[in-house]
Design a protein around this nucleic acid. Structure first.
Length: 531
RNA sequence: GCCCCCUUCGUCUAGUGGCCUAGGACUCCGGGUUCUCAGUCCGGCAACAGGGGUUCGACUCCCCUAGGGGGUACCA
């Protein structure tokens, strides 16, 4: 039975690199019909664990990465919070002490530090002298009499090698002599991570430890702990980390400002920021960051697109397959095909996956996806009326591939605005309505013909415009751009006839009349104009 | 300092000694389509870190160098 785990600290946000690690654990467990466990690596000092954990759990749920055991769902090996397992950790420390695999050490930090520095000066690896090691009650009493405090250190081997197999890196070996007598329990009695982690992994019956490479060098000490406690060793797989765009350093939430200098990253962020502003999202600097999963949820990405992208960040099936459904990725995933080198997060490629998924989406689904954004912006009711729903659906259909992420619907907010509150793009008005000599006149004439057309749909509208162009002896472009600016306020939009049909006869007439009145000499008070 | 890991187009990658004049994808650059934009179609630019071996033959195996990363904490 395969059992994997992901062990987040309750930090208040879900890091995109963490998601990739969790995804690989999840896929591996699902691939082998096993369990995926969420263990919370909190510490006693942390406050508001529940609050700091919520965004992480929400993030996983949104992404469809479900856990079989852990917070909220419980499980046979509860508790799944590390802070509630201290008795188990303390017992393990005692067992290690009893077995002679660990010892009490009474060195002061500065004394160990002095040895460390001496080793560095002599260009050799540091090996603690164990001068303040107490293995008998008598030694212990003597040190205590000096007023010294103790920590518990691992009594690591000093000969031979620690060899183990890594599913991604192959056979790995470390000299035991290069390992330190690592501290496993502090002088205040609390335990350190590596001890706790090894114990919890055993207690939860974890069979495959799949984690980031930064733990590769830590593996020997965990193996030492496990062996000393007679635990069976799990299989190890060390994943390369997700690197920042254009560099091989680890992607970090704190370096947002630096990443924003990169064109693609900035484009991704700006698009999100535009949506957040239009939808009046209560964004915080804490989470409104493309390194954090919330960013994608808040701006309307598809979880499947994000997951598909992340799957291919450090893993591939072959030389050409890029699209994977959940079940396809579960069937295809193997640790052997995970890459060894770090992979840079590429916002442009993520965007490409998102666009591909959005393109294949049925209209009804896309409409549903877009509604919460229109509601947040105060443009439709919640739940929407029948009429609003039809309107939204029509806009979504006409927008086609222009809606790449759900929040993009707000680029077309002008369809949902009252006619007298439609903002005008001043430059567009200037270029298409003011500057061309006959623009206003043509628009007026065409508006008149609009009154009579029947039915008011794109086919008849197209015919009407065709005839108008012929009878006036003008080019299509002479009227169509002016018309677009008049009814949408903008120079760009979707197909003209669809636009007119969606707005309907009355609204088109109202908008054209309004813009014409503004164009009359002396009438322009600038009201309604923007930019 | 010491130990360990990594290194194919700008990016994600295929490649396990001859199938490689190194393939695909994203980006970028041309061009076609079109009422604008998005899209779409066609085409293009672009890589085996460097140096030594081994071999009839190296992107693939070995060594060295360089660069990048991690560990070396009473951090996780």
């Amino acid at each position: 039975m395969v059992r994997t785990r992901f062990a987040p600290s309750p930090t208040g946000y879900l890091h995109i690199g963490g998601v990739r690690t969790a995804l690989f654990n999840w896929l591996f467990a699902r691939r082998h019909g096993g369990q995926f466990i969420l263990r919370i690596d909190d510490t006693d000092q942390q406050r508001n664990v529940a609050e700091a954990l919520q965004p992480i759990l929400d993030g996983f749920r949104w992404l469809g990465i479900d856990w079989d055991e852990g917070p909220d769902v419980g499980g046979p090996y509860a508790p799944y919070f590390q802070s509630q397992r201290v008795e188990r950790h303390q017992a393990a420390v005692q067992a290690l002490l009893d077995g002679g695999y660990a010892y009490r050490d009474f060195a002061r930090p500065d004394e160990v530090q002095a040895e460390r520095e001496a080793a560095e000066r002599e260009k050799r690896s540091f090996v603690y002298s164990r001068r303040w090691m107490a293995e008998t009650a008598r030694q212990q009493a003597a040190f205590e009499a000096e007023g010294r405090q103790s920590v518990v250190r691992l009594k690591m081997p000093r000969d031979g090698q620690c060899q183990f197999h890594d599913a991604i890196r192959g056979d790995v070996a470390f000299d035991w002599a290069a390992e330190q007598d690592h501290v496993i329990q502090r002088s205040d009695g609390t335990c350190l991570y590596h001890l706790a982690s090894a114990v919890d992994d055993y207690d939860f019956r974890i069979t495959h430890v799949i984690r980031a490479v930064e733990h590769l060098s830590n593996t020997p000490r965990q193996i030492f702990i496990a062996r000393s406690l007679s635990y069976p060793l799990p299989e190890y797989a060390h994943l390369p980390y997700v690197a920042e765009p254009g560099s091989s350093s680890k992607l970090s939430k704190r370096k947002l400002k630096q990443y924003l200098k990169q064109r693609d990253f900035k484009a991704l962020f700006d698009q999100g920021a535009r949506i957040a502003a239009a939808a009046r999202l209560p964004v915080t600097d804490e989470t409104f960051n493309p390194v954090v999963v919330d960013f994608y949820r808040e701006t309307g990405y598809l979880p499947d697109a994000l997951i598909n992208y992340l799957l291919l960040l450090g893993w591939s099936l072959d030389d050409s397959t890029e699209s994977f459904t959940r079940s396809e990725m579960i069937d295809a995933f193997t640790l052997e095909r995970v890459n060894r080198a770090p992979a840079s997060f590429d916002p442009a490629k993520l965007a490409a996956f998102q666009e591909r998924y959005a393109r294949q989406m049925p209209i009804e689904q896309k409409t549903a996806m877009v509604l919460p954004f229109l509601h947040a912006a105060g443009l439709v009711r919640e739940p929407p009326t029948e009429r609003e729903l039809a309107q939204v659906s029509a806009v979504v259909r006409a927008a086609g591939d222009r809606i790449k992420i759900a929040g993009d619907i707000l680029d077309f907010a002008d369809f949902f605005l009252p006619d007298d509150r439609l903002p005008w793009d001043r430059a567009a008005v200037e270029k298409r309505l003011v500057k061309p000599p006959r623009a206003a006149e043509l628009l007026r004439q065409f508006a008149n013909r609009l009154q009579a057309v029947e039915p008011f749909d794109s086919a008849s509208l197209e015919g009407l415009l065709q005839r108008f162009v012929e009878s006036e002896g003008i080019q299509l472009g002479d009227i169509i751009h002016a018309l677009r600016v008049a009814v949408t306020g903008k120079a760009v939009g979707f197909g003209m006839f669809e636009t007119l049909e969606i707005l309907g006869r009355e609204r088109c007439a109202a908008r054209i009349a309004r813009v014409l009145s503004q164009l009359e000499p002396g009438a322009g008070d600038g009201h309604g104009a923007v930019d």
